[in-house]
Design a protein around this nucleic acid. Structure first.
Lengths: 169, 169
DNA sequence: TTGGAATGTCAACAAGGCTGACATAAAATA
DNA sequence: TATTTTATGTCAGCCTTGTTGACATTCCAA
């Protein structure tokens, strides 16, 4: 059995596709995601917000003036669920909701200065961990990381994800 | 400005550490995690279980005979929270709880045959997506993926994660 | 002018986190 | 042996964030 080989061999070698390797990858995703959310979670807790607020702030920041419907499909939740989060953010003066110009049924969402401050704090905490991980792993590993994650997304979601990179750089 | 360069250059080039690249990585994690849980979630729904049950089944399967305390720290939840999940799994005959031999205060947890059936169904669905992603990205990308994820974990968690690979291969 | 789309709101519910308090059995220790 | 500590289970109650369903409002477009 010439079964010993490293994944660096690539090509024909399919040992990286064994159930055991896949299980390790699954566990890595699970544990890494905990780390991924840990730092922002700590900040959010002090402000009385949750992860749902973080996600809303993140995507409103990414796509200034996005509509509620847009945000809904990006976040993958119901409008009632998003609305609850959005309402508190608007009440607290972190998000501004402006009536749409072209279509006045739509609401365009923007971060206020106060909202930007919190978004920046959350983002910086999360990026700091990502940066450390990226630096430790190196650029080639990062490229692989991104490739695998992209391949893991649902097709519809991947389209949204790819569309996002063009909006704001 | 000789600023154009690909991350494949590696080494000195730190363009992969820009805030924009980090934000992309953050979004990739967010969207990929949705895909990661989507397939098992669909199965769980038909059985009246949730993600919490999946996690318990997964880790009981990974470390046969693990104790409640062990599972608690692996999952990072409170015992009250785990207990609720565990109780239904035991009542439904998916998990068996045996009094510890050495220390009779402890309970050793095992999957029953029925439990193994569900675990396998969930795992196979999740592995299938991982396998497709791995195959699409290739072994080198997978190695990078794992490196970055590992670097992203909390130190304490990484120790648990690494300890896990030795128990059962 | 009317139908349908986009949005908001209210109510009710469920899963799954959390804390605190308390019970029990068994091990460990004074 | 007596006491303390540990492992587990359980009850009650709270919070966030997801869900559905029903209904009102606004306003574009046919």
């Amino acid at each position: 059995m010439a079964e010993r080989a490293t994944s660096a061999m690539g090509g024909e070698n399919l040992l990286f596709l064994t159930d055991e390797q896949l299980r390790k990858g699954i566990e890595a995703m699970f544990f890494a995601y905990r780390g991924f959310t840990a730092d922002p979670d700590r900040i959010l807790e002090t402000q009385g917000y949750g992860r749902a607020h973080h996600r809303a702030l993140h995507f409103i920041n990414r796509t200034h003036g996005t509509t509620v419907n847009n945000l809904l499909s990006t976040l993958g939740v119901t409008k009632q669920s998003l609305n609850r989060v959005l309402r508190t953010l608007i009440e607290d003066g972190l998000v501004e909701s402006r009536v749409g110009r072209k279509d006045r049924r739509e609401r365009n969402l923007y971060l206020t200065e106060k909202g930007e401050v919190l978004e920046r704090a959350l983002s910086e905490a999360q990026r700091e961990r990502m940066r450390a991980a990226y630096r430790a792993a190196g650029p080639q590993a990062v490229a692989g990381f991104r490739q695998v994650l992209e391949a893991m997304m649902d097709d519809e979601i991947r389209r949204q994800y790819n569309a996002m990179r063009d909006r704001r750089t």
